[in-house]
Design a protein around this nucleic acid. Structure first.
Lengths: 201, 201
DNA sequence: ATTATAAACAGACTGCAGTCTAGTTAACAA
DNA sequence: TTGTTAACTAGACTGCAGTCTGTTTATAAT
């Protein structure tokens, strides 16, 4: 591919090889059946290199998770101006959950959710949540401006509610063995909340 | 203490010493600052004993978590017959969350939530969820029988929604550093869901 | 050219949860 | 009593993530 950039840090190549190899192995055998030693051996590198480029084994999943942000924004911007904000919110959550299930997969999501509980830095997941939070916030603010929200809670508080729900839906799906899609598992709750929010008094 | 029971398996004593010591250490230094080796050393026992009585380090927390079930039932049975089912549900969730925060603590809850994601056996948490689910189910069934539920979803599905929400609230609280109580963090969502459930159409 | 410096890399090493093997003790059975 | 069995205990060992201590290589500075 178009190289000859300028310096072409050789490290990027290594990093990339590790990433690709690891992801392939994870998808073949499952995250915790793969060891870092196996990854570096298959890649022809070393632990030193691995930890030069990633700060933990789970970082590789965190890396993939990066795509989520772009997807969020893409969906967010795809809505027609005049669409009902609650409909936007509903569709947004459905697409989001579909994306997480199909593109990320349960194994990855479990690792993300688990590492957020265990590490104290887990920069990425929390950041990502922050940007998710902001999109939700924006949508709800819009709904609020149109007077569609029948409660006196702040938009901030309502956004938190929606975030909590999404996390609960994903977590619940993560710990249960089920064939139902994440989307279909989420619908009742999301719909109920939206109903509850619309309701006056 | 009144011994001289009959056989008094000596193992029970060891198990108990380990449990007490471990819990004390956990509360002093935090779960992951304490090693199993430290526990057994302080207890004057051995790894062999530890794993004879517990199948993992996190089992010690799982053990404490057992109390939750009793508390669930206690609260559940404490309600006057004629109380509104939704009010029961609301109070139930609030007491439950209060209990988890105050009696169990965030450290413990994080371990529980994390180990449910990682192990494949985690018998207890899922069991406990099942009994939580059943209480919720019973309350919602009661509401449904009284015609207070304005949706055509099955009680099963609605119970799942409530469970998802509770998990989301707890998980969200687990990964965020906040001074707000779990109860107060939960209120908006729980109230909104109840509102959404009551609403006709 | 020569040296300085910092990224990239190698792999030995550490820390810790959990396993395994072998030994000990307590109960009961013959 | 002696043998049998099974719970209990000990602690050495394994597996694996993550660290540490170099060594190599590229680039920039003199």
């Amino acid at each position: 591919m178009l190289e000859s950039k300028k310096k072409q840090r050789r490290g990027e190549v290594t990093r990339d090889k590790i990433l690709k190899t690891a992801l392939k192995l994870f998808s073949q055998k499952g995250y915790d059946k793969v060891t870092v030693d196996e990854i570096v051996k298959k890649t022809g590198t070393s632990k030193g290199s691995f930890y030069q480029h990633f700060s933990a084994k789970s970082d590789i999943f965190l890396e993939r998770f990066t795509e989520v942000d772009n997807y969020y924004l893409e969906v967010f911007h795809s809505f027609p101006k005049d669409m009902d904000p609650f409909e936007k919110l509903f569709i947004f959550t459905q697409k989001l959950l579909h994306f997480l299930e199909v593109e990320m997969g349960k194994d990855l999501m479990k690792v993300i959710y688990s590492s957020a509980l265990n590490s104290k830095e887990h920069t990425y997941f929390l950041n990502s949540n922050r940007s998710l939070f902001q999109i939700i916030f924006t949508l709800l603010e819009e709904a609020n401006d149109q007077g569609s929200i029948g409660t006196d809670q702040s938009v901030e508080v309502i956004s938190t509610m929606v975030t909590q729900s999404l996390m609960g839906i994903i977590y619940h799906w993560g710990i249960h063995d089920t064939d139902q899609s994440l989307e279909s598992l989420s619908m009742p709750l999301i719909k109920t909340i939206i109903k509850g929010l619309k309701m006056k008094n």
